[in-house]
Design a protein around this nucleic acid. Structure first.
Lengths: 202, 202
DNA sequence: ACCTGAACACCGTTCAAGT
DNA sequence: ACCTGAACACCGTTCAAGT
């Protein structure tokens, strides 16, 4: 695992992670053997273990690489002028960019999180970070009077994330097209939670 | 697998499933070997395979046994006089009855669903059934004028299930106590989605 | 330092042999 | 019919041996 050439090390390690992602998407995490990853990466088991500690370590690397779905979605909201518009926009871009491939990989990762306590803690921390960012954005929007005045920023952030996560899981079970199809309903539900003016109360 | 005594067959099979649940909760699905389950159930591998087709078959049996979290939650809503009150009540009972053990098992099952296509289809079907039941209950409540009039029953059912599912996942990452703590926020969000009178628009 | 591939302990599953 | 446990093919990982 230790090596003297950090460039080569990083390069080879990345190649292994890429090969692993290809295998995981194609066959799932537990159906792909180390031998499969070796073949895809074009190296022997001994070499592979020179750059990577274990199969679990590969997953951890992949998680760090893509740093979670939600961050790309949430980060831009922090300094948005119009919170609601920015959130809906992010959801649109997210839905457009998503593929079955991503959903499967995301679910494979989610599944593995539960089994490796260190991974689980890392994921819980990433979750809390997302929630803090979103909560801050909501608090800012509240300050502008853009949202229903009695919202608790933290609770609301948690509920929005839960809603999006649940919709993603439904799409994972039913195919990625399902997420795009559910987008209007999702926006409507979010609009009602936020009680954005114009999305209206009777 | 075939046997002549259906009673013994069912009894032994159930004993295997129970032993497997104990192991899965304790160690997770992939960390428990068939040998572990054999030891817990007190039989040899050959005998175990006499009553059970494979490890995946054990999971399928467990899924059928508990038939999903959501059914117990949703079924009573079908003929409820007050939909909102019944839903909140079901959530309360649900939160009270839930333990870390259940969340872990639920997540282990969810993880495995993705890998076994037949299990996945079964889960998707169960999901659609939950959604139909909930949708019908919402439609009935709409007919009584108890909910915001412009709700689409099907979309709303999907969003409520997504929200609850997402909250369950957050609790799975952060411990089961998290679900009870999130209950007020969850009810508030649901109330806003439904725009139940009195839970109010400004 | 970097790489190989045989070897190790263990896995899920099968099957000849018992009763 | 029901049960046993050794045997099979394969897994993730290691390590002596090469360059």
């Amino acid at each position: 695992m230790r090596s003297r050439d950090p460039d080569l090390n990083a390069e080879r390690r990345q190649a292994i992670l890429d090969a692993a992602v290809s295998c995981f998407v194609r066959q799932g995490f537990h159906a792909t053997s180390m031998k499969d990853i070796c073949a895809e990466a074009g190296m022997s088991p001994g070499t592979l273990y020179h750059y990577v500690r274990s199969k679990a370590d590969i997953i951890a690397g992949i998680i760090d690489n893509q740093a979670g779905f939600s961050r790309a979605l949430i980060e831009p909201l922090a300094e948005a002028a119009d919170f609601r518009a920015a959130l809906f926009d992010a959801l649109d871009r997210f839905a457009a960019g998503i593929a079955d491939r991503d959903l499967v990989l995301n679910a494979e990762i989610g599944a593995e999180l539960l089994r490796q306590p260190s991974l689980r803690e890392r994921a819980a921390e990433a979750d809390r970070a997302s929630r803090r960012t979103l909560s801050a954005a909501i608090a800012a929007a509240l300050g502008q009077g853009a949202l229903r005045h009695d919202l608790d920023p933290d609770d609301t952030a948690a509920m929005l994330l839960a809603l999006i996560d649940g919709a993603l899981w439904q799409a994972t079970l039913n195919g990625s097209a399902h997420f795009a199809a559910a987008l209007p309903a999702l926006k409507a539900a979010i609009g009602r939670i936020l009680s954005v003016p114009g999305d209206g109360c009777p």
